[in-house]
Design a protein around this nucleic acid. Structure first.
Lengths: 165, 165
DNA sequence: GTTATTGCAAACCATTTGCAAGTGT
DNA sequence: ACACTTGCAAATGGTTTGCAATAAC
């Protein structure tokens, strides 16, 4: 088991969010807190609707409406706590963008799975390319589409239409 | 069987499309031909709605409905003649994917401008990365966001939006 | 003659928004 | 108290689809 160093994050997501909200004259409400807790309870990528499903099904004081989920996700994105990732035909997902290093994705077109990777050489090349074009880079999105290991090993017939003549 | 040279030769887009349609048991209709001509009359990136606007405004036999434009764009994408490019908050655009080498984009967040580039080293790195993950890569999308040369030079102006004046 | 295709309008669907009621500071 | 916020329902907006009429082969 590798040793974990807790150097990365000094402030909890909820605290970071509160700070962000404060600068906007916004409040950390019960609903926003519920959503942040839900979002940061696991490191999985998620679709807005998955989150909505979880928090709207409740019948207690932990319930949050669909609108509020969407509104809060936007705020979390703006606050730098979440980032949106486009998965092509599979729709967008959110991922944590706080306390995690920059990375890119392999995206399986069969099962929609996301595999993260980071490659310094690519980052360096991007710097050079931007420089050549006198372009000031602020971010990038690199998505590699194809078929993941799992789907290659156990191909599901229904995905292969083979309608080639 | 038509005679083909041994070298990769540029068949016209319309011909390529006809071949694709044939393999699908589909027909090259007047409407599809109109759209292909319109799409390949210039190399510009375009939004579906821009194309729709051009071909639905007509009152002669050159008119094509919105539905047919969308249906045909999908077919052209499937046929490998067009490719969709996501511009982040600026919405998706189509670009020619036939007779043009693979390339990526610098995308200006100020003006939405697209600057194409190609870098062999990046392609090579992607091959290696996919390989390491036993991932079969079929394509990739690399978009570099930031501010373009033009917008850096004219910081306070919206540049090249001449279609509004 | 079949069978694919078109145009229209209606449906879709994830996301956004107006508004009245509710809540944090 | 005063804004900010919520939940609901309705609006959005780009894209897709059902269907009857039409056209390609």
């Amino acid at each position: 088991m590798p040793e974990l160093t807790s150097v990365r994050v000094s402030v909890s997501p909820i605290e970071k969010f509160r700070e962000f909200l404060a600068t906007k004259g916004m409040r950390l409400t019960r609903e926003r807190e519920i959503i942040v807790n839900e979002v940061f309870s696991s490191h999985e990528h998620f679709e807005p609707d998955q989150l909505v499903a979880r928090v709207t099904r409740r019948d207690d004081a932990q319930r949050v409406s669909r609108s509020t989920v969407y509104r809060t996700l936007s705020s979390l994105e703006e606050a730098g706590l979440l980032r949106k990732v486009a998965r092509g035909e599979h729709g967008d997902v959110y991922e944590h963008d706080y306390g995690y290093p920059q990375h890119d994705h392999l995206i399986c077109q069969k099962c929609g799975d996301l595999i993260e990777f980071h490659n310094k050489a690519i980052s360096k090349l991007l710097d050079e390319i931007a420089d050549e074009h006198n372009f000031r880079m602020s971010s990038h999105r690199l998505e590699v589409y194809g078929t993941c290991d799992n789907c290659l090993r156990r191909p599901r017939r229904r995905h292969q239409k083979l309608d080639m003549v």
